[in-house]
């Protein structure tokens, strides 16, 4: 009985992706499958997945990091500057440093100062965007030609796979990853197991920041240069990739990497397909909102069904009166 439900939970993201492919395949008369568009889909998905590989660390704890859009722009801007100053070699270290610092700041705010992560990261999102505006104004900083190779399919795909393997290893096969998901389930339990929860949280936010910065480099190299609108709305895209893939909002053991990897092309395909169908900016954004709500809702429903085994027979009152001191 329960086994069957796990299956639904597992294959749901694939079903959605498949359905989306069929719908847009028909609606655009096969235009989505044109080679150029497929490459475009891949490039956008790759950036989303890379950023998501970081965000998933925070999401698995039940936290939120929506700095990604602005952080990507800031990291991209700095790395482009570094690229101009020191050549292509300077780009990655600079971006990673920027991402790590931002993550460190956010992590300390959340872990030590107890500011809810969505509030802190929302503030950061706005502040960092303002920072980029100030830094660049209307300026565009070009990246050195020598870095252009990373935009090629033959580099990007292996790079993506390597990143997925590294992150997958950390996330699934280390105590650190276990603790992250355990924090999503019950933070106190981990604290009482003598584990330094604050440290884990901060590291998770740092990884999230670093991956956003790496996504920033791939994006800026693709664009050729950095401007101040880079990455606008990117954080929502990454968030939705996770939710549409079925990663539960509250984090915990149900957080799986493959859900992100399937969810990212799904959301990219959705937006791409709508553009190909000729939908305007307003409509696309509206659909994005509806999909966000629907995805989160469906994940909740499926997840609670799969997890709701029987319920406790004893303490019916305590169940009813939960959350009391």
């Amino acid at each position: 009985m329960r086994k069957k439900k796990i299956n639904i939970n597992t294959i749901m993201p694939f079903l959605i992706l498949g359905g989306m492919l069929i719908i847009f395949g028909i609606a655009t008369h096969g235009q989505v499958f044109v080679k150029q568009n497929l490459l475009n889909l891949f490039n956008q998905s790759a950036a989303t997945i890379i950023a998501g590989l970081g965000m998933i660390f925070v999401a698995s704890m039940g936290g939120t990091d929506i700095t990604h859009g602005s952080l990507l722009a800031v990291a991209a801007a700095f790395s482009a500057m570094a690229g101009q100053a020191f050549g292509a070699g300077g780009m990655f270290p600079t971006a990673i440093l920027v991402g790590a610092l931002s993550g460190l700041f956010l992590g300390v705010l959340n872990a030590k100062f107890k500011v809810p992560s969505f509030m802190a990261s929302l503030s950061m999102l706005i502040a960092l965007r303002a920072f980029v505006n100030w830094l660049l104004s209307a300026r565009v900083i070009m990246v050195p030609q020598s870095i252009k190779f990373i935009d090629g399919f033959s580099f990007k795909l292996p790079a993506l796979i390597v990143l997925i393997i590294i992150i997958g290893y950390i996330f699934k096969y280390t105590p650190f990853g276990t603790y992250l998901r355990a924090i999503g389930e019950n933070e106190n339990a981990i604290k009482y197991a003598g584990i330094n929860v604050d440290k884990i949280k901060i590291v998770a936010f740092m990884i999230s920041g670093i991956m956003a910065a790496i996504a920033g480099i791939f994006t800026i190299v693709r664009m050729g240069g950095s401007n101040n609108t880079l990455g606008n709305g990117f954080e929502m895209k990454v968030m939705m990739a996770m939710f549409i893939g079925g990663i539960p909002v509250q984090g915990g053991m149900g957080t799986k990497l493959y859900k992100l990897i399937v969810g990212a092309p799904t959301i990219i395909l959705l937006e791409n397909g709508m553009v190909l169908c000729g939908a305007g900016g307003g409509v696309t954004q509206g659909v994005r909102g509806v999909v966000l709500l629907a995805a989160v809702y469906l994940t909740m429903v499926i997840y609670s069904k799969f997890n709701g085994t029987g319920g406790s027979k004893s303490g019916a009152i305590s169940k009813l009166l939960k959350e009391c001191t």
Binding site: M61, G62, G63, T64, L109, N110, F113, K114, V115, P116, S117, F118, M119, A120, L122, S123, M124, L125, I126, A127, L128, R129, A130, F131, N133, W134, E187, N188
Partner: peptide, 27 residues
Amino acid sequence: TGQEMCLGAIVILCGIISHWRYKGVVK
């Protein structure tokens, strides 16, 4: 630019103040 940055900083600061010495779990 500058004021927006301050705005973000102020919300964070207010967030810190309003959760000062908070003992519970924060997500």
